[in-house]
Design a protein around this nucleic acid. Structure first.
Length: 229
DNA sequence: AACTGATCATGT
DNA sequence: ACATGATCAGTT
C-alpha cells in the first residue's frame, strides 16, 4: 500500500464520523478511493484489511509502539466477522515480554494500556466472498467495562505469573478465560530469551497476548444492533 | 466448528 | 530482533 495518507482526524467525533461513514461499504470501494490494489486472497497479505482501514481513517502509519491515533489515545482494530456479527478470529493485543521486562502489575501492563480505548471495525464476509466484496460494518468505540477489566486483569495476573515463574508447561494458549498467550513470530524457529523455572536463560518461541473470540463476541454483541431491533 | 500453534508482510 | 497489521491451517 503506498498512496498518500489522508489527514488524521482532529477529534474523536471526527474519527467516529469517518468510521461510521464506512458502514456498508465494500472493501473494494475503500481500496479504490486510496488507489490500492486488492489482493486475491489474504494468505500473503494478512494485515491488508487493517492497514487499508488505518490508512483510510488517517491513522499514523508504521509499527511504532503507540496507539493508532496517538493524539486521541485510540487504538483501531479491524475484526473479521460472520454475517451474524460474530468474530471469526481472535484479536492480537501486544507482545508478551518473556525476558523479565513484564510489568509488575496489571495497572502498569501493556495489555491494559492497549485496550484502554479501542475503535472496533467489523468486516463482514469470508471465503468464497472476494476481498473486495466484503463489507465494513458499524464502528464501535469501546473501553472495558469494570467487568471486562476484572476478567482481563485476572487472566493477565495468571499469565504474568506463568511468565515470571518460567512455567513452560502452562505457557500456552490453553491458559486464560478471555486473554491468552499464543505464538507471535515469523515462524516457530524464531527465538527470544526467557528465564525458566530453574532460573536458567533459555530460548523460546516469542508469544503475544490475544483476546479470545468469546470475549470479542460478547463485547460486540452488547453494542451491535441486532436485526429487528 | 472451534481451537491452538504457525505463519506472512512491512516498518522501526 | 521486535513492533505493527493480522489470517492460515492443522488438530481436536
Amino acid at each position: 500500500m503506498q498512496p498518500a495518507a489522508p489527514q488524521s482526524p482532529a477529534s474523536v467525533d471526527e474519527l467516529l464520523e469517518r468510521a461510521r461513514s464506512l458502514a456498508g461499504r465494500p472493501l473494494g470501494w475503500v481500496a479504490e478511493r486510496l488507489s490500492v490494489p486488492v489482493p486475491v486472497d489474504l494468505r500473503r497479505s494478512k494485515g491488508w484489511v487493517g492497514q487499508l482501514l488505518e490508512r483510510y481513517l488517517g491513522a499514523s502509519a508504521g509499527s511504532r509502539p503507540e496507539p493508532d491515533f496517538p493524539h486521541l489515545g485510540i487504538e483501531l482494530k479491524s475484526v473479521p466477522v460472520d454475517r451474524s456479527g460474530r468474530p471469526r478470529e481472535s484479536t492480537y493485543v501486544c507482545t508478551a515480554p518473556l525476558d523479565g521486562s513484564l510489568a509488575g502489575t496489571w495497572q502498569d501492563s501493556w495489555v491494559r494500556r492497549k485496550l484502554r480505548c479501542v475503535l472496533w471495525l467489523p468486516v463482514v464476509g469470508e471465503a468464497p466472498v472476494a476481498i473486495a466484496e466484503r463489507l465494513v460494518g458499524g464502528a464501535l468505540l469501546w473501553s472495558p467495562s469494570p467487568e471486562d477489566e476484572a476478567q482481563l486483569r485476572d487472566d493477565w495476573q495468571e499469565l504474568a505469573e506463568l511468565i515470571q515463574t518460567g512455567d513452560l508447561r502452562r505457557l500456552d494458549a490453553h491458559t486464560g478465560e478471555v486473554l491468552q498467550l499464543r505464538p507471535k513470530a515469523a515462524s516457530s524457529k524464531a527465538l527470544t530469551w526467557m528465564l525458566d523455572a530453574d532460573a536458567n536463560w533459555i530460548q523460546v518461541n516469542p508469544r503475544g497476548f490475544y483476546l479470545r473470540r468469546s470475549f470479542t463476541t460478547h463485547l460486540l454483541a452488547r453494542h451491535l444492533r441486532l436485526p429487528g431491533s
